[in-house]
Simulated scan of single mutants.
Amino acid sequence: MSIATLFKSPLLSGVGLMLGAGLVIASVASQSPVDALREADTRPALEAAHASHAAMLAVAQAGQRLVSVGEHGLILFSEDQGQTWQQAKVPVSVTLTAVSFANALQGWAAGHYGLILHTEDGGQSWTVQMDGQRAANLVLKEAEVRAEGTDDRQLKRALFSAKRLVADGPDKPFLDIHFRNAREGLAVGAYGLILATVDGGNRWMPLNYNMANSGERHLYSIAEANGYLYIAGEEGLLFRSQPGNDWHFDRLKTPYDGSFFTLSAAGEQLVAAGLKGNAFRSLDGGDSWQTLDLPSDASVVDSILGANGDLLLVNQAGQLLQGNVATAAVRVLPSQPVAAPTAVLRTGQNSLLLSGLRGLAQVLVPSVQVLSN
C-alpha cells in the first residue's frame, strides 16, 4: 500500500492508527437516531474533544486564518496562528484529504466519497458542492457523448470504465484540490478522477479525456506556477497544462516510474517527490529532470518550494529536509521529528504548521527561509 493511500484511506479509522492519536468523539447521543444511521457522506461531523490531536491530512492559509481538514469530516480553524483551534460545521463525516483557499473567505475541501465541500466564511461552515455519484455520472455522460456512433476501441473502453464507475457507487476519493482564484479550480483523485470548474464550483466538468492517463492511474498532487497547472500521480505520472489551454494536459517525461505524492512549483522550478524518498527537480518548467539526493529513503509526503529555489520537504519518518533546487543539496534539519506527518505549511518566518495522524503541531526552525506557494 502506498503512503498516500495509507494516509487517505478508510484504514485511518482502524484501531491501530488511532491508538495514541488523542481523538475522542463526543457521545453519539448528541446526534439524533436518524443522523446516527446515515451514511458518512450525509451524516454531519460529530463534535470532537481534543480535536487538534485527531488525524489531520491537510492544512491551508485563509487570509490570517489557518484551516486543517482530516478524518471523520473534521475541519478545524485557528484565529491565532495555531495556538488554539475551533471545529467547523461540516455536513459530512468522511475523510477529507485536501483543502484550498482562493482568498480569505472562499475555500474548498475534498475527500472520500468523491466529495467536494465549499465555504464562504473562511472555513467556519461548509456545504456539499459535489459528491461521488454526481461525479461518476458526469464522467459517464461525457463518455457516452464521445463514444456515440464510433467504433474507436479506446472510447469504448472509456465508456465501459465510466459505467463501472457509476456502478461502484460514490467510493472514489479526491486526493488534492487547487483553486487558482475564486472561480477556476481543479480536483484530482483515485483512478484518474479529475474535475474542473470555471464558476466557483457551481458546475464541474470531467477532464479524463484531456490527458494521457488511459490506465486510470491515481492522481495525487496539483501545483501551479507561471500560469501553468501541473499534476503528479502514480507510476511517474506528471502532466503540464498546454499553453493557452488550462484544461488540456501534456504528459511530461520523467526518470522515475514510482508514485509522486507531492509536487511544488515556483517560476520555472519544480520539485516532484514521493515513494521511498525519490525526489526530482526541474529548472525548465518540467522539460527536463534531475535527481535530488535525499538523505533518507522515507517516502516524502509534502513539500514547499520558494521563489528563490529554497526547498522544504517532510517525509513519512517525520523529518524536515531543507535544500535548494539550484544546488540539489538537501539536508535533514535539526528539529524534533513529528509523528506520522501528512502536510506542512509555513506560518511565519521561522515557524511551520504540520498536520499528521496524531494531530497538528507547530515547529520552530530558525533556518527556514522558504515561502509557501
Rank of each mutant, 00 (worst) to 15 (best):
Q322C: 01
K276T: 00
V99F: 05
A36D: 00
Q31E: 10
S367A: 11
T95W: 02
E184F: 07
S52Y: 02
G285Y: 02
T197M: 07
V198Q: 15
G348L: 02
R217K: 07
A326V: 14
A26Q: 04
A102Q: 06
A51S: 08
W108F: 13
V69E: 03
D35R: 14
L138P: 01
S303P: 03
R157L: 13
P334R: 11
G16M: 12
E79C: 10
Q133M: 10
N373R: 14
V300H: 06
A135C: 02
L229P: 04
P170F: 04
Q61R: 14
Y113C: 12
V325C: 06
Y256R: 02
A212F: 01
A4Y: 12
Y228W: 12
R183D: 15
A62Q: 10
A136H: 03
L371N: 07
T127P: 00
L46K: 11
S13A: 13
Q133V: 07
D171L: 02
F174R: 06
L46A: 10
L66H: 08
A272Y: 06
M56D: 01
W85A: 07
D257V: 15
K276D: 13
T262D: 02
D293P: 00
V314C: 08
V330I: 12
A279Q: 03
Y230V: 06
A48S: 02
L140A: 10
A182Y: 00
V301C: 06
G169R: 07
Q87M: 04
L186C: 09
H118I: 00
L345W: 10
G20R: 01
A225K: 04
L219H: 14
R157C: 01
Q242W: 03
A272G: 05
L320A: 05
A326R: 13
A110P: 05
L305W: 05
V67M: 04
G149K: 04
G123I: 14
A307E: 09
L294H: 05
D246L: 11
A36P: 00
Q124V: 10
R153P: 01
V92F: 08
F261M: 07
G149Y: 07
G227M: 10
P10F: 02
R183Y: 12
R281G: 12
F174Q: 09
D152Y: 08
V59T: 13
L74P: 03
L292K: 06
L207V: 11
G169E: 06
S93Y: 02
G233N: 10
D35K: 12
I231Q: 10
L345Q: 13
L186T: 09
E39M: 11
G122F: 09
A58P: 05
V99T: 11
S241K: 12
L270T: 13
G215N: 11
P206L: 09
R358Y: 14
R251Q: 15
A328D: 08
V188M: 08
F174H: 06
D35C: 00
T197C: 09
L74C: 04
Q86D: 05
I177A: 08
L312M: 01
H248L: 03
G215Q: 14
Q336P: 00
P341V: 02
G122E: 13
D284M: 01
P341A: 04
A361R: 15
P44F: 07
F160E: 15
L371I: 05
P243T: 08
L12H: 01
Q31R: 14
D297R: 06
R346M: 08
N103L: 06
L333C: 11
F280A: 07
L321E: 05
A361L: 11
W85F: 09
L333S: 07
P173D: 09
Y220T: 14
